[in-house]
Amino acid sequence: MPSSQPKVLRWLLARGAALQFMHTVLSKRKLSPNVTRLDVLAERIAAIRLPGQFVIVRRGDGAERIPLTIADSDEKAGSITLVIQAVGKSTRELVALDPGEVIQDISGPLGKPTELAEAGHALCIGGGVGTAVVHPIAQGLFRRGVRVTSVIGGRSKEWVIFEEELRRLGEVVVCTDDGSYGRKGFVTDAAKDLFAAGGVNVVYAIGPVPMMRAVAGLTRPLGIHTIVSLNPVMVDGTGMCGGCRVSIGGETKFACVDGPEFDGHKVDFDLLWDRLGTYRKHEEHSLTRHEEACRIGLQKPEGY
């Protein structure tokens, strides 16, 4: 156990906490300039989570509830893997946690599990942090004997994540915008070539909204079933608030309970993209304040 444990324990006991509910960070690794992997204790979730499911995480008092996909789990260690892109104040604070520190609340596993193909050839496309989300899906497919090809991408070499893990499950095509690693270009370019080669039965595309929209645009005329994972603003994750409503084939659905994965050909991506901007101003404001606090030493900066 990490050396910071006693401090954490004291903190826990001071709060009269029941230890079994405590979600201790076991390890932390930086995967790319702004993506960090945390392995966190959450025994029950580790034991039953299925591909495509997510958790809602609340770091501590006053913190936001943030939905995060479960990228992996280790049932023996009782831990789940969270892969976090540090974009705003809340995510930066999460990745600033050190091993031994604790996340107060983790609820889940939430959402419907991925609809996994039974056979054939699946293309798993991951953009940026979405690559971590596509990983458990590829894992699930691989375990069923489905042939998996992964297409993953990032701005440049240092932004490519989960390559090694995905290589264990099948062929991997890496794309970088600047050509510093793998193929130069977007994941959609590589996907196009693979579609041209034929044989792909199903596509799982997870990443930024413009990427998912582009992939769905490619597969629609080809009639290849395409599943995407949506990340709208969410609060409770149980269908109580309706903040995560999305439009699927003209019908209103709640991503937290009806999704987060949907038929990419039916998703209204414009609406999703637009609603994701609801709190942009708030996020900027929070972040500026956070950075200010870090600068003058009021707040612990990210741990690296």
């Binding site: 006053g62 509830r65 409770d236 109580m240 608030c241 708030h282």
Partner: peptide, 21 residues
């Protein structure tokens, strides 16, 4: 539900002291 949850449960009226807007 969302509006009241943000303000009551998540204490958004304290934003940016509380993180939820």
């Amino acid at each position: 539900n969302e509006y009241l949850t943000r303000v009551n449960l998540m204490e958004a009226y304290e934003f940016p002291r509380a993180d939820t807007p």
